[in-house]
Amino acid sequence: MSEIVLRDVTKYFGSVHALDGISLEVAPGELVALLGPSGCGKTTLLRSVAGLLQPDSGQILIGGKDVTGMPTRERPIGMVSQSYALFPNMTLRNNIAFPLVVRNVPASEITRRVSELLDLVQLDAQADRYPKQVSAGQQQRTALVRALAPQPDVLLLDEPLSALDALVRHQLRDEIRRIQQAVRTTTIFVTHDQSEAMAIADRVAVMHRGRIEQIARPPELYDRPGTPFSAAFVGSRNALELPVRDGQVSLGSAFAVRPPAGSGIRVVIFFRPEDVEIITDGRGHPATLEVKIFLGATTRLHLVTDVDGKQARIYADVPSRQAASLEPGSTLGIRVDPANVRVFSVEG
């Protein structure tokens, strides 16, 4: 177990500022997820830690040792890429053995370690098959244990679940967490899927335009997003731009909150669909039910309401039993607990 320390890491691709002075510390044994949309720099950051990209400036330390200029093969890392990149000419067993073979580990030790890892991911029966002869999930598990085979100080996972279907993805997400906790390897996990990041990580770093916007534990990030981008990206929030009047921001009778000090005449507010309360007795802010989408235990309501003289769409998640009695086209009342409303100054 080693810590990872990034100090002011910067990378340009031509005129594009891919990494804008990133500083980050990952504690020994911790799993940090880098979360953000495509092009935010999360993969560039991971590849910089792996040594597959050289940062233009800044420092990367693993276990206290500066590895910034060190070749990839000498870094104490294991990595799983989005495509797994298993070697097609080798069986799963030989793929897992590869990092040990190139390190000239004794054959008996390789045999012992490979069967231990095959056992860890329950792939003993498929060990002598080629990557093309096994499922995507089995390929992913092979790639994971191949990365873990040399017992690296750091595990780097670059969207390892994105090529899988939903059911397998959820199973493997939990399995990665189980294995990571079993081996306690310091891990950086790159994903654009917020639910994946929340489920798997000790802390989540939200990235945007080459910067870390916020780094926090999942519940904190979910409940108290620190920036408008974090609020918009995490939790599928409702986002509305509203005027500040008499020192308050309000959406009719749905809620009224105080804006942060120094806000201008307009602010942007965020609240989650599950925090919208639906009232059918004529109270609350009026909204017309447009569409109901059944999601199982809950139903998502698409509501249209008047916001500062313009029509805006608001999403509300309600128990499906309650939603059953609501008819599209009917007018409902909405209310949001002010404690669940996040207010930010309008940028720019």
């Binding site: 597959l52 294991g78 990149a85 070697f87 190139v102 040399p150 780097l156």
Partner: peptide, 13 residues
């Protein structure tokens, strides 16, 4: 490219 990078992260020369 992907295979070479994977091999490099595995420690291969």
């Amino acid at each position: 490219v992907a295979l070479s990078e994977a091999a490099e992260t595995c420690g291969a020369t």
